[in-house]
């Protein structure tokens, strides 16, 4: 067996999973399963939220160790689902190692498409305005603020602005627009539902879920890190609303 290729496959898969918002225990488990296919004496992985170490060792070979640092984190559930399938098929012998490596590398090359994000954020905010008891005009205003939120988030991502400030700026822009619109056209309804709906794409739902699952599976290090992430994101959103409402 080509140990180098096996390690490369596992490392690329782990990297992609961490970057796309998989829980830490899932990354650790997936990589460990892949490396265990080598049947070497030592096949160890240690994963945290911000990077990992993987090593393969045996008296018969020179030891192989890889360290990777993960800096960008987003959420792409499709990627996690596909990597999960690839690793399952590799472990059951359904898939050749070379083929698995090819599929994983192909996933890595796939570009991030912003269209779906830009189109669906206004729909999300409009629908959330209805969810939280808003009227149809309020939903319409929410769609406008959602468009601003999406554009702001996209611009911050393009300009490589830190996630904290990206969230803060988006929340500020959305709530400023909402407050400004209601000042000019007071007959539209109440501000509450619109602001709540337009921050919903920014709230840390993913971070809360992953924090729970990591903590639950005994990975307290990542669990607390993600809990902190949730709090920091929430604080950014709150500050953004404060700035937006305070200014206008």
């Amino acid at each position: 067996m080509n140990y180098k290729l096996l390690l490369d496959t596992a490392v690329t898969a782990g990297e992609l999973m961490l970057e796309n918002g998989a829980e830490t225990y899932r990354v650790e488990d997936t990589m460990h399963r892949m490396l265990s296919l080598s049947r070497l004496q030592t096949a160890e992985v240690f994963v945290t939220m911000t990077g990992f170490v993987a090593t393969l060792d045996d008296p018969s070979i020179h030891s192989l160790t890889v360290v990777r640092r993960i800096t960008d984190r987003g959420t792409n559930l499709d990627m996690i689902d596909q990597l999960n399938t690839i690793s399952r098929r590799l472990c059951t012998g359904d898939l050749e190692l070379k083929e698995a490596f090819r599929q994983v590398s192909e996933l890595k090359k796939r570009p991030w498409k912003p269209q779906a994000f830009l189109v669906s954020t206004p729909v999300v905010t409009a629908a959330f305005a209805l969810t939280y008891g808003g009227t149809l005009p309020e939903a319409f205003v929410s769609a406008l603020t959602g468009l601003v939120t999406a554009a702001c988030l996209y611009a911050c991502r393009r300009l490589r602005i830190q996630a904290f400030f990206g969230t803060l700026l988006s929340a500020a822009a959305a709530s400023m627009l909402a407050a400004g619109l209601f000042r000019v056209f007071p007959g539209f309804g109440s501000l509450d539902a619109v602001v709540i709906a337009s921050i919903m794409p920014l709230v840390p739902g993913v971070a809360i879920t992953n924090a729970v699952f990591d903590t639950l599976h005994g990975d307290y290090l990542s669990g607390t890190a993600r809990m902190l992430e949730a709090f920091v994101t929430a604080a950014a959103v709150a500050m953004g609303i404060g700035i937006g409402l305070g200014v206008s």
Partner: peptide, 24 residues
């Protein structure tokens, strides 16, 4: 993976309204 359904499932319950009311 179970998170594929848990993340969207709990989304409407996430207290975004609470965060707004605090600041307000």
């Amino acid at each position: 993976p179970v998170t594929v359904f848990v993340i969207p499932g709990i989304l409407p319950l996430v207290p975004g309204a609470g965060m707004y009311h605090i600041v307000d």
